[in-house]
Write a protein that binds this DNA or RNA. Structure first.
Length: 466
RNA sequence: GGAGCCAUCGCCAAGCGGUAAGGCCGCAGCCUGCAAAGCUGCUAUCCCCGGUUCAAAUCCGGGUGGCUCCUCCA
C-alpha cells in the first residue's frame, strides 16, 4: 500500500507501527448542524482507505470523533433553547444515518469530547507541568508554541513572519500570536462548563483529538497512530496544533502518515457556510440515491477538489447502471470465486494511494468483457457465478454494487406506478403478438414519458426507471 | 502581504521520465419489427515560452488562468 503523505508531500510505502495492523484517526464533525457534502466526501475518502486496508489483510482500527462541545454548539443552544445534549445527540444520529445511506461503514471507535474530559484534562495538566502550556488571568489555558521546536512543520509554516497581513486578530494575554487555547474558561453562568484543576471551562478545539488518540491508541515510542486524516482545511491550524501538543505531551510524533482530502466545490468555489453555498447531504439524499451519490463522490481521487454538479452525477449514475445491468444479467444465483486477475487489478489500483479512477476503469473493462462473452454464450453458468463473486468483491472493497439489481432500477417507483407499468407492458406484449407495432410503440412512448425505459430481452421485457 | 495546490479530448478523469487508461457525449456498424440494452470500431500530444535529458504531459525556470490556506470549516 502506498499513501501520499500530505506533510512530507510525497507518496510513501505504508509501513505500519505494528505488522499487519493499521490505526487510523479521522477528524469527524462538530455536531451543531446537518452534514454537508464536504463531510460526505471526507467520510467517503477514509471509508475507502479503511476498506482497502482491510481487503489487503490489515487489521484496521478506525476512530472518528464527534466534537460535541464547542462555541458553535453553545450558540445553537442559546438560539434554540434546547439542551446541548439534545442538539448534539440529534446531529450525531443524523450524521450516522446519512453516512450509512452513503454506505460508509461505522468507525470502530467514535469518541466524543464530552466523554473524554479526563483524558483531555490529563493532557493539559501534563502540558502545564512540562511548561508547554500556561494559564492566563481569565483561567484560559494556552499552548506555548515556542516550546515546540517543530511547530510549523506540518503545514510548512516554519519561520513564517508572525502576523503582518494575516487576518488573525490578537487580543488576550497570549505570549505568542500563534499560541492557541487548550482550555477555555467559563464566561458566565449561562456558559457550559466542566470543572478542572486549572479552571472551570471547556476544552479548546484541538486538544480533544490528541487526548483521544492517547486514550485509545498506544502506538510505539515514535508514533501514536499510523494515519491521521481529515479535510485539507484542517492542515492548519488544527493538525499543526494537534501535532505540537502531542509532541510536547508524549515526546513523540502523533501520526506516522497524514492524509488530507480535497474540497467539494460548487460552481468552482469552495462550499462553505460563510459563502452561503453549502449543500446539505440530506438534500442531496432526497434528490439522489445514496449509492449513486457514493459512486459519484468517490469517482474523483480523494486529494483533488471535487466540483459537484448534477450533470456529472448523472454521468456517474450511467456508469453504475452498467454494472447493475450486468448484475441483472447474471442474477439470480450464487457467486463462486472472484476472478484472481480482476481482484488483483482492483487491489493494485487502490493500493496506489486509492487510485479510484484506475479501479473504476478495471471494473468497466470487466463489465464489457463479461457482456461480450455473455452475448456469445448467454448460458455460461461458470462465468455468471464468477461475475456475481466479482461484483460482491466490488461491494466489499468500494461499497457499491451490493443491491438486488432489479430493485436498483426501481428506486423511487411506488407500488401503484409499478402496477401501471406492468399493465402497460402486458398490453404491449399483446400488441406485439398481433404485430400491431404502432400500438406497441405508442405504449413504449407512454412509458418513456413516465420516465420508464424498457428493454426486450430473450427472457421477456424488463423496465428501468431512468 | 505570506504559503500552497491545480491546468490532459466537447464534458468528467487517470498518468508519478520511456513515447496519452477509463467513462459520458458524438459518429459508423452488429443485434432488434423498430427501439432500448449489449457488443465492435472511430475521435487528444497534454495552457504558453524557455531549459535539463538519448527520451518530458511527467523534472527545472518564467509567464497566464483557476482554486485553497493564513478566521469557524471536511
Amino acid at each position: 500500500m502506498y499513501i501520499y503523505d500530505s506533510v512530507k508531500k510525497t507518496k510513501l510505502l505504508f509501513e505500519p507501527i505494528k505488522e499487519g495492523e493499521a490505526s487510523i484517526y479521522v477528524c469527524g464533525p462538530t455536531v451543531y448542524d446537518d452534514a454537508h457534502l464536504g463531510h460526505a466526501r471526507s467520510s467517503l475518502a477514509f471509508d475507502l482507505l479503511s476498506r482497502t486496508l482491510r481487503s489487503l489483510g490489515y487489521k484496521v482500527t478506525l476512530a472518528k470523533n464527534f466534537t460535541d462541545i464547542d462555541d458553535k454548539i453553545i450558540k445553537k443552544v442559546e438560539e434554540t433553547g434546547k439542551s446541548i445534549k439534545e442538539i448534539t445527540s440529534y446531529y450525531i444520529k443524523r450524521y450516522l444515518e446519512e453516512m450509512a445511506a452513503l454506505g460508509v461503514q461505522r468507525a470502530d471507535i467514535e469518541p466524543k469530547a464530552t466523554e473524554s474530559l479526563q483524558a483531555i484534562e490529563a493532557m493539559i495538566q501534563n502540558l502545564i507541568n512540562k511548561n508547554c502550556a500556561y494559564v492566563i488571568s481569565t483561567g484560559d489555558v494556552y499552548f506555548d508554541t515556542t516550546r515546540d521546536s517543530h511547530y510549523g512543520e506540518i503545514s510548512h509554516r516554519v519561520g513564517e513572519d508572525e502576523d503582518n497581513q494575516s487576518r488573525i486578530a490578537h487580543t488576550s494575554e497570549k505570549r505568542n500570536p500563534k499560541d492557541f487555547a487548550l482550555w477555555k474558561a467559563c464566561k458566565g453562568e449561562e456558559d457550559i462548563c466542566f470543572d478542572a484543576p486549572f479552571s472551570s471551562g471547556r476544552p479548546g478545539w484541538h486538544i480533544e483529538c490528541s487526548a483521544m488518540i492517547e486514550k485509545y491508541f498506544h502506538g510505539n515510542d515514535k508514533y501514536s497512530i499510523d494515519i491521521h486524516g481529515g479535510g485539507a482545511d484542517l492542515l492548519f491550524p488544527h493538525h499543526e496544533n494537534e501535532a505540537a501538543q502531542s509532541r510536547c505531551a508524549t515526546g513523540h510524533e502523533l501520526a506516522k502518515y497524514w492524509m488530507h482530502n480535497g474540497f467539494v466545490q460548487i460552481d468552482g468555489e469552495k462550499m462553505s457556510k460563510s459563502l452561503g453555498n453549502s449543500f446539505f447531504l440530506k438534500d442531496a439524499l432526497k434528490a439522489y440515491d445514496g449509492e449513486v451519490l457514493r459512486y459519484y463522490l468517490n469517482s474523483v481521487h480523494y486529494r483533488n477538489d471535487f466540483n459537484f454538479n448534477e450533470e456529472d452525477l448523472l454521468t456517474a449514475k450511467k456508469r453504475l447502471d452498467k454494472l447493475y445491468r450486468l448484475k441483472k444479467r447474471v442474477s439470480p444465483g450464487k457467486g463462486s470465486t472472484v476472478n484472481k486477475t480482476f481482484k488483483k487489478a482492483l487491489l493494485d489500483a487502490m493500493s496506489d494511494d486509492l487510485n479510484i479512477s484506475i479501479a473504476l476503469a478495471v471494473i468497466d473493462e470487466m463489465v464489457a468483457n463479461t457482456n461480450d462473452v455473455l452475448d456469445a454464450n448467454p448460458k455460461d453458468k461458470g462465468l455468471k457465478k464468477e461475475t456475481l463473486a466479482n461484483i460482491s468483491f466490488i461491494d466489499e472493497l468500494l461499497g457499491f454494487g451490493g443491491k438486488e439489481p432489479f430493485s436498483y432500477f426501481q428506486i423511487g417507483v411506488d407500488e401503484a406506478l409499478k402496477e401501471k407499468i406492468e399493465t402497460l407492458l402486458a398490453e404491449r406484449i399483446e400488441a406485439k403478438k398481433e404485430k400491431d407495432f404502432s400500438r406497441s410503440d405508442a405504449i413504449r412512448d407512454d412509458l418513456t414519458a413516465m420516465g420508464i425505459s424498457i428493454m426486450d430481452t430473450a427472457d421477456g421485457t424488463v423496465w428501468e426507471k431512468a
